[in-house]
């Protein structure tokens, strides 16, 4: 999937994650902020990367602000943001 315009999904409420995506020329770039970055930072990044791979996204700049979202929410918000950006 090719990202053609900036888009966002999710919220800054507890248990949610706010995702912003932008077109990018140089592969996948992820900026992550999380209230649980020390404990789960690696895992959140991994879930985001896996979701992008499933959606066949190769070039995107993604900014994530996490408020303690579980995997199912991270996947849902990334997918929604990507679909909105197409």
């Amino acid at each position: 999937m090719k990202i053609t315009n900036p888009a966002k999904a999710g919220s800054l409420e507890s248990s949610d994650i706010f995702i912003m995506v932008f077109p990018n020329e140089d592969g996948i770039e992820i900026e992550l902020e999380s209230i649980v970055i020390k404990q789960f930072g690696k895992r959140i990044r991994q879930v985001i990367e896996e979701t992008l791979k499933e959606l066949e996204v190769e070039n995107v700049k993604l900014i994530a602000k996490d408020k303690g979202a579980l995997d199912y929410t991270i996947k849902a918000r990334v997918e929604t943001a990507i679909r909105r950006a197409m």
Binding site: A9, G10, D71, Y72, T73, A76, T80
Partner: peptide, 15 residues
């Protein structure tokens, strides 16, 4: 509407 649909789908699959 699009966001909720995907979130509920994932919730049913995973929770």
């Amino acid at each position: 509407k699009d966001a909720a649909r995907v979130l509920v789908r994932n919730a049913i699959s995973n929770l």
